[in-house]
Amino acid sequence: MNKYILISLLLIAVSLKVLSQDIYYTKSGLVEFTSKTPLENIEAVNNQVVSFLKTESGSINFGILIKSFKFKNALMEEHFNENYIESDEFPKAKFKGTITNIKDIDFNKDGDYTAEIKGKISIHGVTKEIEAKAEISIKDYKVIANSTIMLKPEDFDIEIPGIVREKIAKEMTVKMSINYELYKK
């Protein structure tokens, strides 16, 4: 009997060890995208980005509710949701990937690192492989990650009609700024 209790406690301890393998997360990550053309600059900000980061395996993911993107002009926001990204049909954008050089990053030590990230991004029902670099700085078990990527609307089957073609950039600059904290259940 004692043997069973011992074994189970040991197994639970192992499970807990697995848990404490450090998952970092945030629910208030910042993503903003900019479209710059000579005719018009369009900016949208979303500060409700959810992201998880598992330091042992280096797996990282993002979840973004499309409707949380805020524009200066509400009509533009409505058009973005209704006509371009069709958020009723595709409410979320997701990224699932890994930090390929995770071995180079010590999350228990303060410092600055460059992370190389590879994974799959899904927007508007289309999934694409992407690679990106992120600046990571670690301080007191808090992780700050910054990254900039370029995305083309046409890669994600987002149709832009001729009448506004000149007002919308061919490539969007997407900036991310995420402050991670240790994940506690």
Binding site: L11, S15, Y25, K27, S51, F52, K54, N61, K96
Partner: peptide, 24 residues
């Protein structure tokens, strides 16, 4: 005991992709 251990494992050893989906 096995069931007990299994359940504890399921609770703790969750994947971060499940955590992400759960948020939404």
């Amino acid at each position: 005991l096995l069931i007990f251990v299994l359940i504890t494992n399921i609770i703790y050893a969750q994947d971060i992709d499940d955590l992400l989906d759960g948020e939404f």
